[in-house]
Design a protein around this nucleic acid. Structure first.
Lengths: 111, 111
DNA sequence: GAAATAGTCCGCGAAACGCGTATGTCTATT
DNA sequence: AATAGACATACGCGTTTCGCGGACTATTTC
């Protein structure tokens, strides 16, 4: 069940047919998504998100977790960049931090 | 095709079986997602995103245009927490990082 | 009212899913 | 060498769900 799909479309004054045409699918298919009778393929879902300028997470109603955990080793896979004193951390600095922290944690655990 | 699914799992040192168990699906099903041979249902996809603490958009490779900058000195004011190897950084560790990096930067700039 | 437009519902054939099972690889043990 | 266990990969089946075209209904326009 996609969230607010009808509202998004109506805000743009698009008909079911116009919207379906833009997505390259049948009108009845698109209508099925709005009514919840059908679930789009992932590809279609991404296209719908593009068309309505939103995220897939938003369309499927996934709440953004309040306290978001960022794994330092995954930084390059994430949409985040760390900075210190307004200066972005270089990848070398990130590597240094990882090594530094791991060393500290090893020493700490052997006490 | 889900992005970096294998890498995400391996970083957590989970086997295919463990991961599938957490998701409540068959191992071969989960393996199919990693290899790209199968596409999960939306419900499963949301669960996978939850498990790996990421967004569906990220999993399907929709680029988030936001490259969000996180200032380390402001971490306690932000909705983010940093972790290393799945273990949250303590406030002492954050302080250590700040000191460590500032020292490195000072040395670097005096060369 | 008639015609055009927009929205809803249905059932079919095709596609894709989740599953259990079989097989392969690697490591450790006997 | 043979065996066992853990993990990963591949396959094919039955079931489910999809996208589609078209029929039908509702709304708008003239």
């Amino acid at each position: 069940m996609l969230k607010n799909l009808t509202e998004r479309r109506k805000q743009r004054n698009w008909s079911l047919q116009e919207t379906a045409d833009q997505l390259g699918i049948a009108k009845s298919t698109y209508a099925g998504y709005e009514s919840g009778y059908r679930t789009p393929s992932l590809l279609s879902l991404a296209e719908i998100a593009d068309l309505f300028e939103t995220t897939v997470d938003s369309l499927i109603g996934r709440e953004s977790t309040k306290q978001e955990r960022i794994e330092i080793t995954d930084l390059n896979l994430s949409p985040y960049q760390l900075s210190l004193d307004q200066q972005l951390l270089s990848s070398d600095e990130i590597i240094d931090i990882i090594a530094f922290l791991r060393t500290k944690r090893t020493l700490k655990s052997s006490e």
